[in-house]
Design a protein around this nucleic acid. Structure first.
Length: 463
RNA sequence: GUCCCCUUCGUCUAGAGGCCUAGGACAUUACCCUUUCACGGUAAGUACGCGGGUUCGAAUCCCGCAGGGGACGCCA
């Protein structure tokens, strides 16, 4: 069997959302699983709507998710000469022809067909045999249409959906080049996939209906038809299709929201694909297991909560220095000051188990980097006259003890016994005094990280 | 409207005729742990869209219906 070659071919006309990313991920994974090649192609033939900014977002998103490509990015606009050459060949022998019907004329035709309950289709009025002797209208720049076969069926075995068959009578002569000679999607995609020797076209299932038209073009070009795999749609959290105004979020929003790339990668991989009961798996396992046959055939709804759970799982096992680097700017954005404060990697190690996003880590870590001044009401509530003697005892013990968690814990315990108190009775006021809040990780760990100097001085203010 | 595709717990899914009184995960609820908030642990509830077949036996095969999605552009 020849080398597997797949591609991801987004159009830079909007944002790169999860649906696009998932299509890229599966296409990439299929190539990698088979030791093949993966090509990135930018479908920018829609000159009106394509933007450089959108191309950058595509490249950034792929880099963040770790989807590497062997060739590209190849822009369709760089290949216009090639499309024109193919167009000329097809025009020369009647596989394609010029159509002078105006947009208004076509719109009227569609209206009329719809009114009669028919599927709107071009009626072939400028096919060579129908155009005999017909006057070419003044000032109309023609489009080029593909001469679709009139009879028979087009069928293929979709690697995800199975057998699909459509009658040629359902199809019409589609426009393959606009009046300005720029090819349309259905034509450019065929020429490209052909020239780039794509063996497996893995894409969203909104293209299922385009596939028979494309197969007809492959045949007209006497070219081998690749295998097709149509991935089910990803729906938003509300079950609606992802779209700009309906909850579609750019892939690059996820790093901004504090998600790790391995978490989104894993989530996307598992959405609409499964390998037995496997839920959490590294990319190596995914590449080893991935197969189109396990892709589900129905649309899948995005679930924020499950992504958050995976992110939590990956945060727990992530390297502390790496997390510290990611979280540092977030803490500063919250007004925290990193200089002269406890080492961030150690703080991260203490708080990351409870975090679902990097922002959760930043918020939990902030107490070590804020000014630590407690609300007077909070102090009044916890630092009562009844506990002050105990606080004094604790301060004295902590002044003498080795500054390590076990010794600090022992000092706390002794103080408790000595004053006949329960843990919360002492821990709460200490937290309020030292950290400025009563919700913190375990007391001994917090005190250790704050350092003796800060702890003694904070306890001193209460006496 | 016409054509194409899809349909298992709230969500993602396992399931390819008997292993299914339908399994896992997230979420939910309860309990446990506990030094607050969490984390963690244990447990529970919840699903084969509907109707007909085929078969000794159907979530699994066939037909119909309903619902959902997609396409019908000089967008991709």
């Amino acid at each position: 069997m020849t080398q597997v070659r797949t591609r991801f071919a987004p159009s830079p006309t909007g944002m790169m959302h999860l649906g696009n990313a998932r299509a890229g991920l599966f296409s990439w994974a299929y190539a990698r699983h088979h030791g093949g090649q993966f090509i990135l192609r930018i479908e920018d033939t829609d000159l009106e709507r394509s933007t450089e900014a959108a191309i950058k977002v595509i490249l950034d998103s792929m880099a963040w998710l770790g989807l590497d490509y062997d060739e590209g990015p190849i822009r369709q606009t760089a290949r216009l000469d090639r499309y024109r050459a193919v167009l000329d060949e097809m025009l020369a022998d009647g596989r394609a022809y010029k159509c002078y019907a105006s947009r208004e004329e076509l719109e009227a035709l569609r209206e009329e067909q719809r009114a009669r309950g028919l599927k709107p289709r071009y009626d072939g009025r400028w096919r060579p045999e129908n155009a005999q002797g017909k006057a070419i209208p003044e000032g109309v720049k023609p489009v080029i249409r593909f001469r679709n076969p009139d009879n028979g069926d087009v069928s293929w075995t979709d690697l995800v959906k199975g057998e699909i068959s459509i009658s040629n009578t359902e199809l019409d002569d589609l426009v393959i080049a606009r009046a300005d000679f720029v090819p349309t999607y259905n034509f450019a995609v065929v020429v490209d996939d052909l020239d780039m020797a794509i063996t497996h076209v893995v894409r969203g299932d909104d293209h299922v209906n385009n596939t028979p038209r494309q197969i007809n073009i492959y045949r007209a070009l006497k070219a081998p038809v690749p295998q097709f795999a149509h991935l089910p749609t990803i729906l938003g959290p509300d079950g609606e299709k992802l779209s700009k105004r309906h909850g579609a979020v750019s892939v690059m929003q996820y790093p901004a929201d504090g998600y790790l790339p391995e978490a989104l990668f894993n989530y996307l991989a598992r959405l609409g694909w499964s390998h037995g009961d496997a839920e959490k798996f590294p990319r190596e396992k995914f590449l080893e297991w991935f197969d189109l046959a396990q892709v589900s055939r129905s649309a899948a709804q995005f679930d924020q909560a499950k992504l958050a759970w995976l992110n939590h799982e990956y945060i727990k096992e992530a390297d502390n220095d790496r997390l510290a680097g990611l979280v540092a700017p977030l803490i500063e954005a919250l007004g925290g000051k990193l200089e002269g404060a406890p080492d961030l990697a150690r703080v991260v190690a203490l708080v990351k188990d409870r975090a679902h996003t990097l922002h959760d880590i930043a918020n939990a870590a902030l107490l070590f980097y804020a000014n630590g001044k407690a609300d007077p009401a909070l102090l009044a509530q916890h630092v009562t006259d009844a506990v002050k003697p105990a606080l004094a005892t604790l301060r004295e013990k902590l002044g003498a003890v080795a500054w390590e968690k076990p010794a600090i814990a022992a000092a706390v315990k002794e103080t408790l016994t000595q004053h006949g108190l329960k843990m919360p009775q002492l821990a709460m006021p200490v937290r309020a005094l030292v950290a400025g809040q009563t919700q913190t990780p375990s007391l001994d760990a917090v005190l250790e990280l704050f350092g003796r100097e800060r702890v003694l001085s904070a306890l001193g203010t209460s006496l």
